[in-house]
Design a protein around this nucleic acid. Structure first.
Lengths: 210, 210
DNA sequence: CCTGCACAGTAACAAGTGTTACAGAGCTCA
DNA sequence: TGAGCTCTGTAACACTTGTTACTGTGCAGG
């Protein structure tokens, strides 16, 4: 655990803080596709992402979903921070995008470290900062982009987060993430293929030039 | 300044912190409609809202606007916090929705107080928390609501923030905030009037039941 | 009072997106 | 090999939203 923690966070946290994390945190492996946090869950520990990737989803009353953003190594979930500090239920769902390794830190330590370690404070603020930026990007996409551009952005992000130009998704899964219908995605993907920007196979998409 | 500060924040901050704010902060009055922060500005002090209301706008490359949310007394702008801490340019525009009074606190104090005062830390975290929640609401509205529902939500919020069921706006101004066209707003407002939910006059709208 | 302007109402049409329906292609497993 | 399933492609249509154009109304200033 220590070595993994040092690799992902060593340049951020001082040694004493790393020691405390190793002491109180627990390592957790999550296979791809598995749910990590569900809407309405009470969150009692905060995840530090060591390896893998997580996608954060919003859901409305009718069960319709929307992808908010992805998290990578070195990230934490500001939404979870939010819940921990506010002692409220989770407003979002978190799903492992790939096989993922986390360190779970009990929230009881949060307040203590925030007063004690400047590096921890900076990390928490930096997390909020990143997450606000990602939310702004999401809002921009929703407000200012058409579905074809949102789809391109999605494919770019997905290829990047998985370090793979082959995207293993069905049209239906993409439609859920973008909160639209499968037919719309098929239509637009076909158009992107005709434009030579992607190539389509059953169950996966190869990004060529987006 | 002290009395106003105590009225708006006294229940939050300890006396020593209030003293420091009084010492280093400057009071600022902004008339309704005036710009407070422009996109791209470097932000060097943090506003504490004493009186009035502010609206926070996002803009895309074509100059199209979108209202993100309103701020009221006791709020601060997490976006500004963001900029201060990250030393980056403002990603948003802030405009006085009504005549507004602020206390501007230089960012140099921020880091110091964050280590020193637990109440300040809580306030900053609480601000991030509120703003993330508002952003989530905005995303929900964009992703899950039709324009008629977004318009109703807008009118409700606007009436609430101004403590007035008369909304002093032209259709064009509303269209800008919701990032749509004047014709669309006129159409939907007329429908709301026919449903008995609002009444329309030149340059203002009266909320009846939303 | 008249002129000019901003604002609001409305129609007709265009574009983008969502829905329904169906067909065919590819995979799995008996 | 064939049955059953999932996934994809496509057509036809409906709905929401955006655009253009024109009209009328109310207000301000000369």
């Amino acid at each position: 655990m220590r070595s993994e923690l040092e690799e992902a966070y060593g340049f951020l946290f001082e040694k004493e803080l790393i020691d405390e994390i190793v002491e109180t945190g627990t390592l957790k492996h999550i296979p791809a596709g598995e749910k990590i946090i569900e809407i309405g869950d009470y969150v009692t520990s905060m995840p530090l992402l060591i390896k893998g990737a997580i996608k954060i989803l919003r859901e409305d009353n009718d069960g319709d979903e929307l992808l908010l953003y992805f998290l990578e190594r070195g990230d934490t979930c500001a939404m979870t921070l939010n819940c921990c500090l506010g002692q409220t239920k989770s407003e979002i769902r978190a799903v492992a995008e790939r096989d993922t390794t986390l360190i779970m830190v009990p929230i009881s330590k949060m307040e203590e470290w925030t007063g004690k370690y400047k590096s921890w404070r900076n990390f928490v603020f930096e997390s909020y900062h990143s997450r606000l930026s990602e939310m702004l990007d999401t809002i921009d996409a929703l407000a200012f982009l058409n579905m074809d551009q949102r789809l391109m952005r999605y494919l770019r992000d997905k290829a990047k987060i998985n370090h793979d130009e082959i995207i293993q998704s069905t049209h239906q899964q993409i439609a859920y993430d973008l909160h639209t219908s499968r037919v719309v995605i098929s239509r637009l993907l076909k158009k992107l293929e005709l434009d030579g920007r992607i190539s389509l196979q059953r169950n996966h998409i190869k990004v060529i030039d987006l």
